[in-house]
Amino acid sequence: MTAAPAPRWGRLLAQPEARLALIMVIVFALMAALAPDRFLTGQNATSMAFQFPEFAILALAITITMLTGGIDLSIVGIANCCAIISSLILTRLAPGVDAGIGWLLLSYLAALAGGAAAGLFNGVLIAYLGLPPILATLGSGLIFTGLAVAFTGGTAVMGFPASVAWLGNGSLMGLPVPLIVFGVLAAGLSFVLSRTGFGLKVQMFGANPLAARYAAVDIERLLLKVYVASGMLAAVAGLVIMSRANSAKADYGQSYTLLAVLIAVLGGVNPYGGYGRVIGVVLAVLTMQFLSSGLNMLQVSNFAREFIWGALLILVMVINTRNWRRRRAPAAAPKGETR
């Protein structure tokens, strides 16, 4: 900020989502300026729309867990494990390349069930056994990845029917299918958070877990549902990844955990819980995709991108933390009066 912003602007920019919208526009303009002939093309727009949904869906999973003050670091493990479940059904039980649409749907259902089961496992560890979410999901993530390796011996599973490609590469009414999937899931999550009792309770629990217990909120079931939702979102992401890669493997999307956390934090979700909006996460996803595509066109290496992601995560934290601290501080203040 060079010029002192007018008070109205100041108030608007106090909203993390508004700040983010501004950042998004800046990134877009910057990329458009740096590579106008490649960035501002319909082809680029389409390719971006196919690329981001897979990690954007994972970011939704992180968002819902972060709202409760937790985190799910097992999402990539779940995504791969579920993709492998689906791929094994298609290739081992079904006749592989010749498998019909019925087999495909069955394999998708199995993957979703797998995601729900994995989420249930996390939820039980966190809600009923009282493990800290960080360690519970780090540990379970290793187990899910390990299972994925055990199922496949660590090699990629291939040889799917052509119908697999639809979820990740198809188009419906001119829109990329993965984009539609993400849109539906994001709208759904936004709806759940703002218009359902479950969503309200998630945010209240995130703001003060102990008070939620004393207000007779069904904490255990709430957390269970949150982690099951996270697991199922991860499963969907896994299926999209599988479709786009036309294969399933235990170590796909290794960098997506970081990316998903980055997007959630960038989107203004408070990692201590209690605050976060899906619109922020969507803006963050778009910002990241603009940045990522732009960097791609500028032929920046994968490693440099990793560097930029890490730097960005910390930078965003620095900017946002001022607000969070102001929001959190009173809870930590000593009892009694403040003045």
């Binding site: 009792g197 309200l200 703001a207 939620a212 209690g274 959190r328 809870a331």
Partner: peptide, 27 residues
């Protein structure tokens, strides 16, 4: 007994602090 840590969701709105107990009845 301890309003600040057990009773209230300090960062949430006054309305939400009252409404949190009535979610099921307004579904």
């Amino acid at each position: 007994e301890d309003r600040l840590t057990e009773g209230l969701f300090l960062t949430q709105s006054i309305l939400r602090n009252v409404a949190v107990g009535r979610v099921a009845s307004h579904a």
